Amino acid sequence: MEYHYPIDYDWSTQEIVDVIKFYEAVEKAYEKGINRDELLNAYRRFKEIVPGKAQEKKLCGKFEELSGYSPYKTVKTVREANSGEMIRMR
């Protein structure tokens, strides 16, 4: 897809890379399916970088607006799944 990931330019290069990995994990959940634990680990790292709910909501909302993929729904599904399960969003 042709869009830019929502990021904060005050983050370090590694933090930007890790946030993009979370966005890519959400994309993978919609496009191919992803292991629950892999996505959960990417989300946990995302939350280390974006601990506040307001900023998380803003970034995830922008990502959903640009991509059509919902990080909120994906993470909700991941939390309800069992360890090792494949997550496939529709």
Rank of each mutant, 00 (worst) to 15 (best):
N82T: 04
E2H: 07
R36T: 01
R90F: 13
D10V: 04
R88H: 15
A54P: 00
V26E: 09
D8E: 11
T74Q: 02
E31V: 15
E31W: 07
L39K: 04
D37V: 03
K21L: 15
T77I: 04
G33D: 07
Y9E: 00
R79Y: 03
K76A: 11
N35R: 08
K53Y: 09
V26T: 11
F46N: 01
I20A: 09
D10A: 14
G33S: 10
R90Q: 14
Q14V: 08
N41I: 07
E64Y: 08
M1P: 05
A81G: 00
K32P: 01
K62R: 13
P51D: 12
A42E: 08
I7E: 01
Y3R: 06
P71H: 04
I7M: 03
R44Q: 09
S67C: 06
N35P: 02
G84D: 02
T77H: 01
L39A: 10
Y23G: 13
N41Y: 06
A29K: 03
T77R: 11
A42P: 06
A54E: 15
Y3Q: 02
N41S: 15
E38Q: 15
K57H: 09
F63C: 05
M1C: 04
K57S: 10
R45T: 11
H4Q: 12
D18N: 11
A81Y: 01
G61Y: 04
G52H: 13
I49C: 07
N35E: 12
V19H: 00
Y30A: 11
D8L: 07
E24Q: 14
E24K: 14
E56C: 08
L66Q: 05
T74F: 03
M86L: 15
E24N: 13
Y43W: 13
I16V: 14
E65F: 10
K53H: 09
G84H: 02
N41C: 08
P71W: 03
S83Q: 10
T74S: 06
Y23T: 08
E64L: 05
S70D: 04
Y5D: 04
R88P: 02
K73R: 12
V26G: 06
I16Q: 03
K21R: 11
V75S: 05
K62N: 06
K57Q: 09
